[in-house]
Design a protein around this nucleic acid. Structure first.
Length: 283
DNA sequence: AGCTACTCCTGGTAGC
DNA sequence: TGCTACCAGGAGTAGC
């Protein structure tokens, strides 16, 4: 499932082919993919606009738009589980299976493909407002070990669901949370306000290292869903320490990796490397 | 404030 | 072989 590294890879590889392009038309094969406002307002927002900058915020692809040289909102794409974004040279019709939205450009055609239909490609007149709820970007300078420690202490939440909460930190998903927690030797059920300064510093360092290494390897592909815009799988799945490795030995200590469900999410950990939090005294 | 359950979806797979 | 039941999961929302 696309998380920060997969979205970052998508943006980097798409940027040369998209920046400067003008959107000539919009064909929507699954109306929900363009959001609750419907196809007409999506078309009105994007057709005729020029893509001037392609970037990423959290797990969103952000395509800034202009009309006649003036800012004209943005296209936000969230890939969710199975979304894929790519440019094809020729506008074949019909588009391939599972293509939900096609945007013919002045050169090529931008495709939004999404098997499970959870993803969204939406137009926003005011993209800042649409992104305002998101927490800090983990790879920026502002996201320091100290900042993370303060944020953790300010909440009384179970660690794993807190790290998945996009208003707390932006861009992490199930895979990279499990990997980061293992590398930081923290149990996913630890309470955030009981993570001390040293452990916060480890978590901070490991979140950043995990994300950076995953970006370097163009993300993780272990099923048929995530591919780069060029159609290639990422290769970070070969570095997984715990994700999807239940029943196999921990690569650090040899104990069997276990899978439990935390906040309705499959959660993978080593109970030796990531000791359970001390049980709360029950009165 | 923080937790759980539920919703949206469909391809893949386990079980019979 | 062919059927059905169930699963995965990001994020928004409702209810407690």
């Amino acid at each position: 499932m696309p998380e920060l590294p997969e979205v970052e890879t998508t943006v980097r590889l798409l940027r040369p082919g998209l920046e400067g392009r003008t959107i000539l038309d919009a064909r929507v094969d699954w109306p929900r993919s363009v959001g609750p406002d419907g196809e007409a307002s999506f078309r009105a927002g994007v057709v005729g606009a020029r893509i001037v900058a392609l970037g990423r915020r959290a797990k969103y692809v952000v395509a800034r738009l202009e009309r006649e040289g003036r800012p004209a909102g943005a296209l936000l794409v969230h890939l969710r589980m199975s979304g894929r974004l790519y440019v094809e040279a020729r506008d074949e019709s019909p588009a391939g299976e599972w293509v939900r939205v096609s945007l013919p450009l002045d050169r090529g055609v931008l495709r939004f493909l999404d098997v499970r239909k959870f993803g969204r490609i939406t137009f926003h007149q005011d993209p800042e407002a649409a992104l305002a709820h998101l927490g800090p970007e983990p790879l920026t300078e502002e996201f320091t070990a100290d900042a993370l420690h303060r944020l953790l202490r300010a909440r009384r939440r179970v660690l794993k669901p807190l790290l998945l909460d996009q208003t707390f930190v932006a861009g992490l998903g199930n895979i990279y949370v499990d990997e980061s927690l293992h590398r930081a030797r923290l149990h996913p059920l630890r309470r955030s306000d009981r993570v001390d300064r040293a452990a916060s510093a480890r978590l901070h360092a490991e979140i950043r290292a995990t994300l950076e290494e995953a970006i370097e390897r163009e993300g993780s592909s272990f099923d048929t869903f995530y591919r780069t815009p060029e159609g290639q799988p990422g290769s970070y799945q070969h570095q997984f320490q715990v994700y999807g490795r239940a029943g196999r030995p921990c690569l650090t200590c040899g104990r069997e990796i276990v899978r439990l469900v935390v906040a309705q999410r499959g959660t993978h950990l080593c109970t030796r490397c990531q000791p359970a939090p001390r049980a709360r005294r029950v009165r």
